[in-house]
């Protein structure tokens, strides 16, 4: 219902009065809806941001999907299945919101499968132990919540609404992860060690989920003005650290950062420098699992082709039958 062609901004001056009215609307905290006028750059930025987000939800199923068949009990298996199914749902909510900007689902899928579009770097890390399911829920979904809560107030209506739904579902994800960690941390020495090693693996990549540091973040200022970003990368990251450290301490687990220390003066935790070279390498495609993740998506798409075809053929046959009955 919302489809609308992409306006090409190249060389084409956008009317100053429309631009001013657009910004005024955002400043008044009014939402932009699909058929409203918007600057081409706003549309383009949103398509990039939202599709990256949707792709992340979809690819994000893979590291956890890895453990569905090996979850340690029926209860854990059901919980993990429900969580992974939620992530598929999150992907679909955001794809559907992105399509209101005039981009087709086919195009979005193609951009993911050809590697043109990016997704969150965190999903390019392996999940070798069951404890990684705990660390992911606790830290990765925890970081996602930090990012997503402010997006519930994003200026683009369909995006904001999809975030409201998603945030409602995410807190289950984080809690089930923390509960896995709790059980392991209070278990045998080997189990506690497994939890600690998962924390060691996930901590730094989770901090990198907030993106490069503010001084290197290229899109921030305009996105803040458009209210499709509300807090800077470093502010959100700090908030996450401050919230998470006491949770680790509570379980008797150690955050793998020797310089981590409460700073009475700032009211925040100080921490070591983050190695953003690692982040840039993973984004470039050189993370431990980039190839595997993309291949899994390509295979799934290929293997699902017959289902989509069968659905089309079935639909056509039903239609033909109805028509011949009516005749």
């Amino acid at each position: 219902m919302y489809s609308q062609g992409l306006t090409d901004a190249k060389g084409q001056q956008e009317p100053a009065d429309l631009l001013a009215e657009f910004q005024a609307k955002i400043d008044r905290e009014e939402k932009i809806e699909p058929r409203d006028w918007m600057p081409a750059a706003y549309r383009k930025t949103l398509i990039r941001q939202m599709s990256q987000h949707a792709h992340s939800e979809i690819v994000g199923q893979l590291p956890e999907g890895n453990w569905i068949t090996r979850a340690p009990s029926l209860k854990r298996k059901m919980i993990l299945l429900a969580k992974v199914q939620d992530e598929a749902g999150h992907g679909l909510y955001i794809y559907s919101a992105t399509e209101t900007l005039g981009v087709s689902r086919d195009q979005l899928t193609e951009e993911l499968l050809t590697g043109k579009a990016k997704y969150s770097s965190i999903f390019n890390y392996p999940t070798p132990s069951w404890a990684d399911m705990g660390a992911i829920g606790w830290l990765v979904d925890g970081a996602a919540i930090m990012n997503q809560v402010p997006l519930c107030r994003a200026s683009y209506g369909p995006y904001a609404r999809s975030m409201v739904r998603i945030c409602k579902e995410e807190s289950f994800h984080q809690r089930q992860g923390y509960e896995i960690m709790t059980v392991l941390a209070r278990g045998t020495a080997a189990q506690k060690d497994m939890a600690q090693r998962a924390l060691n693996r996930t901590w730094w990549p989770a901090l990198m989920m907030f993106g490069p540091s503010d001084k290197d973040s290229k899109h921030s200022e305009q996105s803040m003005k458009w209210k499709i970003k509300r807090f800077s990368n470093d502010d959100l990251r700090q908030k996450f650290i401050d919230a998470t450290v006491p949770q680790a301490e509570h379980l008797g687990l150690t955050i793998p950062d020797p310089k981590l220390k409460w700073n009475e003066a700032t009211g925040h935790y100080d921490h070591s420098e983050i190695d953003f070279n690692e982040l840039f390498e993973v984004i470039k495609g050189n993370g431990p699992c980039n190839k595997e993740r993309l291949q899994a998506r390509i295979d799934a798409h290929k293997q699902g082709a017959w289902v989509r075809e069968a659905a089309e053929v079935y639909h056509q046959r039903q239609k033909d039958n109805n028509e011949s009955e009516a005749a």
Binding site: M1, L92, Y93, S96, A97, E99, T100, R105, P158, R161, S162, R165, R308, A311, E312, Y314, H315, Q318
Partner: peptide
Amino acid sequence: HVGSLHASD
């Protein structure tokens, strides 16, 4: 209204 999706019918 809650969103949209694709389907064959």
